[in-house]
Simulated scan of single mutants.
Amino acid sequence: MKNTLLLLPLSLLLFSCGNKPKPETIDNTAIIPVKIMPLEKQGAALSIAASGQFTTDDEVYLSFKTNGIINNILVKEGDPVRKGQLLATLNLTEIDAQVQQAQLGFEKAQRDYQRTQNLHNDSVATLEQLQNSKTSLDLAKQQLGTAQFNRSYSAIHATQDGFVLHKLASTGQYVTSGTAVLQTNGARNAHWLLRIGVSDREWAQVKTGDKATIETPSIPGSTLSGTVTRKSEGIDAQSGTFIIDIQLTGAMPAAIAAGMFGRCHITASGNNSSTAWSIPYAALLDGNGSSGFVFITNDHKTAQRIPVTIAGMEKDHVLISEGMEQAKALIISGSAYLKDQSPIRIIQ
């Protein structure tokens, strides 16, 4: 009787343990619940994100033609200027003296030539002497023209309507010929550009005429439109990138100035645009530059870890150009718990 009473609780315990649900396993390996996204062999248009600074296509560094001491700079940084406006002058004492010397030399050459011509007419001077005198007169005339030309470029005038971007020298400073004194642009003509730097892969995907959208902190909540107008044919030594110019189109807002920061998204029309897949950020693992990994499944039972090539970034997606050609479904949730060949269970 006692043995019967002892066996009864034991049998109840075994019965309750037998009814407890067991975790899903295959050969002691946990089955990971995941969410998937079907993949089709249709590419998404590549969108290349890059940042740069606003500038214009007609920035120019202005300098004096001759050496000298700066007498006066008549503008400040940020000042608007008109085409032909006087911006800076040199001390003309030395330059005026050079012009006067050339003028005196020309007048003497004129007198010498006239005298030689009279002597030649009287058969006193030879034809050779007359020709040499004419050559000296021509040389003196050219020297006078050169001196007058240099004097005219001993002052700096605005080459176009625009603004003064930078003042690179000061009054009283000695400058040599060609030394930049002022930098101006033609912003009044609204030739605004966003100049960006991109990698060699991105450079190859972008073509002249591709469209872009541009954002800048100076105009929060708004976007500007642009078109790729120039691609550099060589790498920029300072930044180590390839330079691309995006011309702003449409009405130009007043809240843009040279040097302001801007960010753009270019819709690339390169050859790779037909083989790009747009996937969520969460599906990409171990992203490093242009490479990364994703988990896919072709049988809905096993996860496969495959390498992929990153073609670009969008606001909430990553663009993949290579590596997913044979994939049927992308795992977009649960990837953190997966390994290559992990068993999976699809959940909604």
Results as ranks from 00 to 15, higher is better:
Leu193Gln: 01
Val206Thr: 12
Ala180Val: 04
Arg201Asp: 10
Leu144Asp: 04
Gly162Arg: 05
Gln205His: 04
Ala155Met: 13
Ala190Asn: 15
Ser133Leu: 08
Gly145Cys: 01
Ser154Asp: 03
Thr146Gly: 07
Thr126Tyr: 06
Gly145Met: 12
Gly178Val: 02
Ile196His: 02
Thr176Cys: 08
Leu168Phe: 08
Ala190Pro: 00
Tyr153Pro: 00
Asn189Ile: 06
Gln160Thr: 12
Ser136Pro: 00
Arg188Gly: 11
Arg195Tyr: 01
Gln131Asn: 13
Glu202His: 15
Asn132Leu: 12
Gly172Glu: 07
Thr179Cys: 01
Phe149Trp: 10
Ile156Ser: 03
Lys134Trp: 01
Ala212Val: 05
Asn150His: 09
Thr179Leu: 08
Val164Phe: 10
Thr159Asn: 13
Tyr153Asp: 03
Ile156Met: 03
Ser123Ile: 05
Ser133Trp: 04
Gln205Gly: 01
Ser170Ile: 14
Ser199Arg: 05
Ala125Val: 04
Leu193Gly: 02
Arg188Ile: 08
Asn150Arg: 02
Asn150Leu: 09
Ala169Val: 03
Val175Arg: 04
Gln143Pro: 00
Ala204Leu: 03
Asn185Ser: 15
Ala204Gly: 01
Thr184Trp: 06
Gln148Asn: 04
Ala147Ser: 11
Ala158Tyr: 02
Val124Gly: 06
Trp192Lys: 03
Thr159Gly: 14
Arg188Thr: 09
Asp138Gln: 13
Ala180Pro: 14
Ile156Leu: 01
Thr159Lys: 13
Thr159Gln: 14
Phe149Gly: 00
Leu194Lys: 11
Lys167Asn: 08
Ala204Glu: 10
Leu144Lys: 12
Gln205Pro: 05
Ala140Pro: 04
His157Asp: 06
Gln131Lys: 15
Gln129Cys: 02
Thr171Ser: 08
Thr179Lys: 11
Asp138Trp: 07
Ala147His: 03
Arg195Val: 13
Trp192Met: 06
His191Met: 07
Asp138Val: 10
Gln131Phe: 07
Lys211Gly: 14
Gly197Trp: 00
Arg151Gly: 10
Gln129Met: 08
His166Glu: 13
